[in-house]
Nucleic acid binder design. Structure first.
Lengths: 210, 210, 210, 210
DNA sequence: GATGAATGAGTCTTCATTCAT
DNA sequence: GATGAATGAAGACTCATTCAT
């Protein structure tokens, strides 16, 4: 019995070992310089071994993406569970946290973005499941906050699903514009625009006239 | 003098010839299948010749991106110059047009997105100039519309620069979520969310109480 | 004794289990996509276990080939045992049946062909035995038919051994030309040539002047 | 002008260089041990260069096959142009020559067989053309011989197309049985069977009663 | 100005086999 | 008896770039 469990543990460790190497490469060299053979070297494992644990390069990216989404989720979750915080305050804090996340965990952000932007990636069913779970949890938190706000009378009966997507979409879109700060955006400080937008978004659902 | 001009013309024509081939590949095969040698075959020009006119593959992509932005600009410009249309109506139409553009000119959208999302691209000064000009014109149009709305009393003194960026960022962010329609977004119809968001955005700047 | 027999039975069952998986792969994915690890997955057995029961991939192919030859044999045998059928009729029916076999059991045909065509396969003694038994039974049937024909006066004292090999060789050679139907054979209908040839073959041994 | 021609010559030479290496490998190591990287090493050319001259491994095989068919054709052609030889004699000599060819140029035979037997190869149009030309010339010779025989009254009005295919198919099928000589064929001397069959084939078309 | 031949490192992936448990 | 983790060489193919002509 103990043997089986140990085996399982070891297997899990190998997966971690591979992911560690991949993550390291992701952080140090960027997403475009990750290749199976590099991962194999970095992890001190044979190429075949990598394929034994992950059936494609994409699978490794997905695992990494999940990691990133988990990190992001836990950050956001921390904010959400602060009982005393008002819903609108929560939204603002979440937006702040997301901005920080894209700055402090750039590699994770890049990989999440990679899947979102790349025109060629189509998840298969199993992969969809994973991404779904990881990604939708974040949206769910925002939805819950809207719900709370609606219930407490703080918000003006906004559609939680639609608004949460709009909220997240706006943040995400603006983050992408970061690199245009000094070109297209004509030195408009993106951070200020970001804050401005978050305020507007919150205004949208706040009860008017109050 | 005449000789010089003719030379310049010819040079411009060669550049077009190359771009035509690249564009054709972009549309027919997708961004991932563009390679210099393919462009060379498609353009009936030698590989070396391509390198004489564009110093890297990236340069070609940039030119293509500009094209895409030009197409997009002219669509938006058409809407803008309709004198009788109200500013808020214009914003809605622009949003519609952008959605259509990302659908009907997917290849252009992908290439624009490619530069926006890819973490590795850093423009040099000359490249920045180009992208700047092409991209900022679009934002400018939106800014002008806000201005008009502010002036005509239709809008409530919104910050034209900031709001236009927010507006565009929201649209762009939501478009990116298209592929999550059936996973993370849990079958929420993205088009409906898009329309919902555009309405909210317009509401933000409309004069309240009216 | 009972224990030994049970062990033997179990061993036989494991071998079947493996072969079932291999056959399934052969039929569903084609001969080029059979690998030990695929067989292992399909058979729910460990890779090592496969190697315990078959000492190489080739051994499995051989077993599969035998199966194919068995199927073919039984088809041909069915024809042979029809007491009332004339020998020349039998030959024609066998030719028909072989054509159908190569069409309807392509996977089996391919594997038989694999060993016949591949220049690298050299059977060891044990393997030879197996193939011998399976393959020669078919030729034996044809030989017997020639014998019968010779005896009954239907055939003109043809050499049973030589003629049966010629007969089979012709059929086999023509089948291989199937894929040349639209190239080298210049749209000559291979099926018609096949029938034509079978008729000629039968004529060869039929008593002349009758 | 001279430059262009020299370039063309050099290009042709490179193609030969590659083919030489491939042919050498084919003869010395067998068809299964030909790989692009081996060819590249053997020809002292970069891998990319190989691909510059042949767009796939298959293309090289095809060129090699053509070579083999050319060799075979010229052998058969030599026999055909012997004006004084009777048609039936020619057929017998061609059969002999084919047997010798499969013995003396085994590598070429293997490669021809490779394409004939392999279930996975499907020629594209351009490739079909090549193989067609090379392969059909051989059949054509046989057809012409039949024609001649028919015309001279030597043969009994056999269908040239059908019979030539049957003729070739029989030879080819029997050659394949070579390796079964000591197993399935039960030590029946394949060479004798081959000769026996050729005789029978010739008898088929010879005017009867003569 | 224009060409296109040459490169070779790099891509992902497969696979038969072994061996410690 | 049974397992399955580990391997690493090998597979075909791509590609941006250079440079002699």
């Amino acid at each position: 019995m103990g043997v089986k469990e140990r085996k399982k543990m070891e297997k899990q460790m190998r997966r971690s070992q591979i992911l560690d190497a991949a993550r390291h490469l992701l952080f140090s060299e960027g997403i475009d310089h990750i290749s199976i053979s590099r991962i194999s070297k970095a992890s001190q494992l044979g190429v075949g071994t990598i394929y034994f644990y992950y059936k494609s390069k994409e699978d490794i990216f997905i695992a990494l993406q999940e990691e990133g989404l988990d990190v992001l989720f836990s950050i956001i979750h921390q904010i959400h569970i602060q009982k005393k915080m008002a819903p609108d305050r929560k939204l603002i804090q979440i937006a702040d946290a997301y901005y920080a996340f894209t700055r402090d965990h750039q590699a994770y952000f890049n990989i999440i973005n990679y899947f979102l932007s790349s025109p060629k990636i189509f998840f298969n069913e199993a992969q969809k499941q994973h991404v779904d779970m990881a990604g939708s949890r974040i949206l769910q938190v925002i939805q819950e906050i809207i719900h709370q706000g609606n219930a407490s009378g703080c918000f003006a009966k906004a559609d939680p699903k639609k608004f949460s997507i709009m909220f997240w979409g706006t943040l995400h879109g603006l983050i992408q514009f970061k690199k245009l700060e000094h070109t297209t955006l004509q030195n408009e400080n993106i951070r200020q625009v970001y804050d401005y937008s978050v305020n507007k978004l919150v205004e949208i659902i706040q009860k008017k006239g109050e």
